[in-house]
Structure formats: C-alpha cells, structure tokens
C-alpha cells in the first residue's frame, strides 16, 4: 500500500463560538482523487486551508509528504475558491511568476506554461493581459498556475465553479490524466454529480464533521437498502420502518430507517391491502446519499 501524500488527523477549528471543523481526519494517496464534499458553509474550505498550513488548526495535525505543509509548499498545487490573478499582467508572465514562486527556473516555468496553455487552448493569448481574457480563460489560467510546477499533491477548491460543460469535461479529463500520472488530488466541491464522475473516494462533510467516507461503491452499498421506488395505489403515511415518503407524481420514493428491511416493509404494505405496481430498490447517487445524511442530521 502506497504511503499517504496528505495525512490530516483530528483537525478542529473554531471561530468565536462557531465550530467550523470538528475532528476531521483524511488521507490522500498518490494516484487517487479524493472528494471533500458538502454544502456551502460545511467547513470544507477551512479544512483545506488548515491542510495547506494557511490557517493553524486549534487541534489536530497535518503532514504532507511526511512534513509540515509550510515546508513543502513547492510540492503542492492549490486552486483557491477565491480565484486571484493580476489583471494588468500578461497571461504568460503571470504563470511564469507563479511557477518561479514555486521553485521553478524562468526557462522551465516558461516552457511548461506554454505547453499547458496550448493544452488548454490559450496559446494565442500568452501575450494578452489577464483582464482581456474571458472568465473561462481566466479559470483555465488559474488551473494552469496550480499544476504548472508538477506538484505531487493538488488541492482544488470548487474547481468546476463557473465552467461551461465543455470546460468541465476538459477539466475532468485533465484531472483523470493527472491521477494516472500518480498525482494525489484532493477536490473540494458541492457539485456532487461531478465529484461522482472523477473521485475514487469521497468524504462527506456536514457541519464541520466527516459524516461518511469511502469509495463510491462502498457508500452506495451502505445506502442501497435505504431507498425504494414505489408505484402503489395507496401508501399509508405511517408505514413501520419508513422515515420519509417523497412524492414525484405517481412514483413515490421511500426513505427507510437505517436497519429497516425493504422486503419486510413490502410485506407489511401488502398485508394492509395496498396494491403495488412497482417496488424497486434504488442505488442512490451521491446527491441522494447526501440528502439522506442531511435529513438524518
């Protein structure tokens, strides 16, 4: 088993009375994409900042490549949620400067920047000022700045924000390539459908705590028995073992209690004289899992 590139243990952070992050632990290994998922305000960004050493945790420990984050800044790529670029700078110069700050030589930074710009369709804008570029182009420029120096760990905070479907697809493709190159990628997003397409493992954060963690398969399996699609002529609201009934027209969605058995519930329904046309166990998407967790919490 390969050694973790990033290891966070028991991270806690409180701002005033508000507990932002509560006992968060996470590991990212080389060649895997981990999704740190959760709604806005769940403490994802604060967690990332603690992992990067930008904010000191109240308690807990972070090590990247076996060292404190500040000692290995040049081996980390970071795309912050609050995107920043100097608007009066030329695109290529901006990238070269960022590369040099990450320990690259001028020639190396320039060469790689040009390569990445060509890869992301920005080669004709190398001499353009950043302020002249479109929003999408600026997004791509920022992505290049985070991977230019060939980091071993790439941390991306809401990387899909503001991207159109074509750019989103391109980004997913690039992330996949980086993973194949053995990079450890930590992705923070609230766009669960996109995370589902790229992440090998996910950690769902809710109110500062990791509420569930594992591979997508593991998570789906854990929740496979928790959702049933039903078309029935009458559905009593007090069915034992059913926590919630969601309606979308004729079709209903039953959210079951954690230990409930769907077969046992179906039997109960039939015994009460219900006529059932469809009874289907449903493998939930990440979004649905998250909804389940959120409703439980």
């Amino acid at each position: 088993m390969s050694k973790a590139v990033l290891r966070a243990e028991g991270l806690c952070k409180r701002f005033g009375r508000l507990q932002i992050v509560d006992d968060l632990s996470l590991e990212v290994k080389p060649g895997e994409v981990i999704g740190l998922l959760g709604p806005n305000g769940s403490g994802k960004t604060t967690s990332l900042r603690m992992m990067l050493g930008l904010i000191p945790p109240d308690s807990g420990r972070v090590s990247i490549l076996g060292q404190p984050p500040q000692r290995v800044q040049d081996r980390i790529g970071y795309l912050p949620e609050e995107r920043g670029l100097y608007p009066d700078e030329r695109a290529l110069d901006m990238l070269v400067y960022m590369g040099r700050l990450r320990g690259m030589s001028h020639a190396e930074a320039r060469g790689r920047a040009l390569k990445w710009m060509a890869r992301l369709g920005l080669e004709s804008h190398a001499r353009s000022k950043v302020e002249k570029l479109s929003h999408g182009m600026q997004q791509r420029l920022q992505l290049i700045a985070s991977v230019l120096h060939d980091p071993e760990l790439i941390i991306l905070d809401e990387p899909f924000l503001g991207l159109d479907p074509i750019q989103t697809h391109l980004l997913l493709q690039i992330l996949s390539e980086l993973r194949d190159m053995g990079k450890a990628i930590l992705l923070c997003t609230h766009q669960l459908d996109l995370a589902e397409r790229i992440c090998d493992r996910v950690a769902m954060v809710f109110r500062g705590r990791v509420v569930i963690e594992g591979t997508l398969e593991e998570i789906r399996r854990r929740f496979a028995n928790r959702m049933v699609r039903v078309i029935a002529e009458s559905l009593p609201p007090d069915l034992p073992g059913v926590r919630e009934i969601r309606s979308s027209g004729r079709e209903k969605e039953l959210i079951l209690e954690e230990q409930a058995d769907p077969d046992w519930i179906l039997r109960g329904l039939l015994e009460r004289g219900g006529r059932v046309h469809l009874w289907e166990r449903h493998a939930p998407s990440l979004y649905e899992v998250f909804q389940l967790i959120a409703s439980t919490a």
Binding site: Q70, Y78, Y86, R102
Partner: peptide, 13 residues
C-alpha cells in the same frame, strides 16, 4: 483587490 493573497500565501510564507 485581486484576491491574490491566498494564492501567494500558499506559495510563500
């Protein structure tokens, strides 16, 4: 103004 602070602090102390 250009929100460069966080990016800079991720590269340098």
């Amino acid at each position: 103004n250009n929100r460069m602070g966080e990016l800079m602090l991720s590269a340098v102390r």
